[in-house]
Design a protein around this nucleic acid. Structure first.
Lengths: 341, 341
DNA sequence: GTGAAAGCGCTAACAG
DNA sequence: CTGTTAGCGCTTTCAC
């Protein structure tokens, strides 16, 4: 493959001149520019970004690490990131850890060796992982999840508020006995959502029953399992269920229906995050919308800004505001009946 | 950041020796190995993959180009690719064209400049795009879509068979008047699926009515719009609708329901591709399963094999077989009634 | 077994 | 304005 040297020979100019026209980094007389461009054309020359990176000590590529691309929460985030990356001439290396810690660590190694200019991570919930990350000399911003107390570059949504809104909605509809079915308690978003539940219940003067709080995973199966568990353990069923994610809500509703419990007639259900398919679920899901595309977009913008500003960068956090989406899973006029087993 | 030179000084060995122990590319006495490793530890050294790439003329990274990460068909494909990439010490640069041709071209440029070792493309349907691709000196394999007549490295699913299976299923249930609602007719999978429809209808001795064949996009909105169009244009409604993708089927069912037409009681609907949420759609969708994860996995395996084998590589095509998934959207005992407007 | 040295393709002083 | 040159950090002969 042709190199600048080949071009310089062919065009009878110095290699520096070639570089200057390729990068438009200095004025070159129209005549020479022409000769160079012609040679480039003829030899089908492409600058070698690897060589340039070695010299410039920057790669114009960033890594994106997330835990599970199959979770429908992420594709929009990734799209947001990719859109701004390409607009700024950056490439993104995608790393899908599949929730595997050792895989996460090996991605970190690779990213460091490949000298990415920065990293966006959507999978950091613990101090431990953060420490691991900070060991590397990498620019980074966290997205969606964050360890407790973390207060530098981050963009996420107000998870606490999300569930508060959900509880408010339930309360305004007259529901009082409300269950919460959450995700993995290690994950920051999951904690924040549970906090939001507690806060919302208190705010509305509603009583919290510990027997109606469940934690599991951010999956449909987990939501399903939690309901089965609840049905077994609890004497008086809740009037409404607040799920920590739409995927969980899907599982919840599935389990309920299989047990002959109608949604929303018997029990109301709210989701959270506004999955692409929530509107067309077995029963159209009322939920809380999360601006995921924005999150990815802003995350990447923040990272690139950090990269270009270097030490002058002033770190910040952006917290996006979620909003209520009313559909059919909890619109039923509330009755006073209490369901017992 | 420490370099091999730093290590070599600190450990009092030559730079070549450092390289040898880092890469285990030659025997080094245990003593020197120790000294080197100690120095590496102390200086927190990380090999510079950029420099290595420049020298070795290979980057251990591949590009993946696809048209729309938001389409639920792709995440599993990407996961399959990423899984095998990491296992082989490769990174993947994700490129999401958003169906934008100029963006596709600029991705190609970038991939060439960044000297990726290969490319997987899931968005190539036309001769034109293929030509554009072949201009670059890049190893590549096509996945999912392919231009007519293309017969080198490819992995996809038997789209024709998929729809044939769907038609067979309808036929076995007694449905005769069947509509087909397809995607963009430019896209290879879309054509193949339409062919499968025609083939299946003929095979089952069923009459094809051109007024019952629609093309649009692989989206819910498009499926919705096609049904509205059909309802307006057609005198005698079909008994069953064969959708080219689940997303389309979602739109179809939504439109039908809004018009007061029950699925499957009034009209049966089959999807295609087995979207993650098809089982929990408003009406659980009977569909055809596509092994998407496998497709990504095999595609990446094929590419990496091609890369390592170089000119000795013997190109091939892998066609995965889809399978019927029966749920509720076309199980209704068929009645002889004909619906007219 | 280990070290010296050339060179991958490019950028950026620095001279002229 | 244009050319010369010294590296960027690493791999890889080729001597010793």
């Amino acid at each position: 493959m042709a190199t600048m040297k080949d071009i310089s020979k062919k065009a009878n100019v110095s290699i520096a001149t070639v570089s200057a026209v390729v990068n438009q980094s200095a004025f070159v007389s129209p005549e020479l520019t022409d000769r160079v461009n012609k040679a480039i054309e003829e030899l089908n020359y492409r600058p070698n970004a690897i060589a340039r990176s070695l010299k410039k000590k920057s790669t114009n590529t960033v890594g994106v690490i997330l835990s599970d691309i199959l979770n429908p929460y992420y594709p929009a985030i990734v799209k947001g990131m990719d859109d701004v990356a390409i607009n700024n001439n950056f490439s993104v290396i995608l790393c899908n850890t599949s929730n595997d810690k050792s895989r996460f660590l090996s991605y970190l190694d690779v990213m460091e060796e490949k000298r990415v200019d920065g990293l966006i991570l959507a999978n950091i919930s613990t101090q431990e992982d953060l420490l691991e990350l900070e060991k590397r000399r990498l620019n980074f911003v966290l997205v969606n999840r964050r360890p407790p107390g973390y207060n530098t570059s981050y963009v996420g949504v107000n998870n606490e508020l999300a569930i508060e809104i959900a509880v408010d909605h339930f309360s305004s509809l007259g529901y009082k006995r409300i269950a919460f079915i959450g995700g993995n308690s290690e994950i920051s978003t999951s904690k924040e959502r549970l906090n939001g539940f507690v806060k919302g219940m208190k705010k509305n003067g509603l009583q919290i029953s510990n027997s109606l709080i469940f934690q599991g995973e951010y999956t449909q199966d987990s939501g399903y399992a939690s309901v089965i568990k609840m049905l077994k353990e609890v004497q008086v069923l809740p009037e409404a269920i607040c799920a920590s994610s739409d995927l969980i809500a899907f599982g919840v509703i599935k389990a309920l229906r299989e047990q002959g419990i109608q949604v929303p007639e018997d029990i109301a259900v709210m989701g959270n995050d506004n999955n692409h398919f929530s509107g067309e679920f077995l029963v159209p899901l009322s939920t809380i919308n999360h601006p995921t595309y924005e999150m990815g977009k802003l995350g990447m913008e923040m990272l690139l800004q950090g990269i270009s500003e270097g030490a002058n960068h002033y770190p910040k956090q952006i917290i996006l505001t979620p909003s209520l989406v009313v559909r059919e899973s909890c619109n039923f006029a509330h009755r006073e009946k209490v369901i017992t087993k």
